[in-house]
Design a binder for these strands. Sequence first.
RNA 1: GCCUCUUUAGCUCAGCUGGUUAGAGCGCCGGACUGUUAAUCCGUAGGUCCUAGGUUCAAGUCCUAGAAGGGGCGCCA
Length: 477
Amino acid sequence: MSKRIEIKKILTTEPKGQTVTVMGWIRAFRSKRFIALNDGTTFNNLQVVVDFEEYDDDFLKKLSFHACIKVTGALVESQGAGQRVEVLARDIELLGENNLEEYPLQPKRQTMEFLRSHANYRMRTNTFNAVFKIRHGLAFAVHKFYNDNGFYYMNTPIITGNDAEGAGEMFRVTTLDAKNPPLTEEGEVDFTQDFFGKSTNLTVSGQLQGEIGALALGKIYTFGPTFRAENSNTTRHLSEFWMIEPEVAFMDLEGNMDLAESFIKYLINHAMNHYPEELAFLDKRIQDAEKNMKKEERRPMGLLDTLRFVVDNDFERITYTEAVRLLQNSKPYKKGRFEFPVEWGTDLQAEHERWLVEKKFGKPVIVTDYPKDFKAFYMRLNDDGKTVAAMDVLFPYIGEVIGGAQREDRFDVLKNRMNEMGVDEEELGWYLDLRKFGGAPHAGFGLGFERMVQFVTGMTNIRDVIPFPRAPRLADF
RNA sequence: GCCUCUUUAGCUCAGCUGGUUAGAGCGCCGGACUGUUAAUCCGUAGGUCCUAGGUUCAAGUCCUAGAAGGGGCGCCA
């Protein structure tokens, strides 16, 4: 394997007839003479020219779609118009045959639904190649951004003993016999006999533990898997997803917004700078798909234009109270087009958020200072006693990408809020104690990584931006 | 969880107001051709019309229930 050259490198190498060895998968074999070879390093293919008189027909038949080969030959300038260089094959070795009578993929456009049901093969397509390279790039950029800004990467537990985080339904982690669990005298399942000696779940957020880190290291971020057992059937929810949660001491809501905005812009810039080919491919893919759609169903801007626009413009920042006022003065409100009511004290619905983002401002919007009644117990109570220092970052097409807040750092106020909202004080005693022993003002947020990948790649279904999606009734591979 | 649409060949789909042997393109397989670019040309094979009931002389087509999938909503990231 030592002499193998990556196709990405070969395509930019000066052809002088030098001998090269390449390995890859066949994308097409045309005229019994031309192989389009791809090794995943770029989605441009290398043309391999085969002298078919040198091989018997049985061998040539095995050079089929997605079969894997090793080719040694001379790198020369291409005679054809479609590419700059090509390899004149001197030796072809079949590394892996492909049985096309059973293989589901075909050398043509396939639907996302079909590819989703063959997730073990879909990474071989150009679209998923591009998506997962960009996903990698964004993950790398997350670490680079925080590292370069003095944050420490903190790993919060995936199995937690907290039952009271309130971020959603949880998956139980247990080794007890589901058919015959030990019972207490009251007839309940006796989790004291379980593996951890208590009831445990998969985490729904690393935030609460992240606060511990922030109040010691100053600035931390988490980036790990997160689990929600909600029966959500939408294009933007997963049961298992990755979340980035920075938490910063001595930062207020204003600083939190600044951090969120600069972070998102950094991620998008990184993708545009490092994955221009992939983004251009995805941009064209969306345009092609939209050709058959009605005008009002198409995006107002192409993918690349949208990304540039987000990076070049300040996010709009408004309070919840202002948002309600704007919505009540909006055309759809006055014409009764909204399905849900708009009045101070009820949460904004997707239709309201979309109007703000897509119609009113035409750019990302940060809504702050929501009524305390439908926000989490840990968000800092504002002086008005009615609202909390929360923020939601709303994006076009995908809605909420970030939810965050300045945290309640006053012991008594937090204790009251926990009691008000029925949060178990015993269970989260350690969290409350952070305010008792050297507490500090601090803030943070959670970014849904897949939603970010969705936005940058323009993929319409979140299940297509994670290699093996988990969702209700879906846990293949 | 709610609403809605869909389910016919390996894939994408057609199949009229119910009426002979269910079709097309692509793919596969076989053949021809050979400087191609989603190569081209010819040919063969391939179907539990999602499942179970029902209506009818007759059901891919109509009705009921269920399953799976898409989209929208809610919950949220």
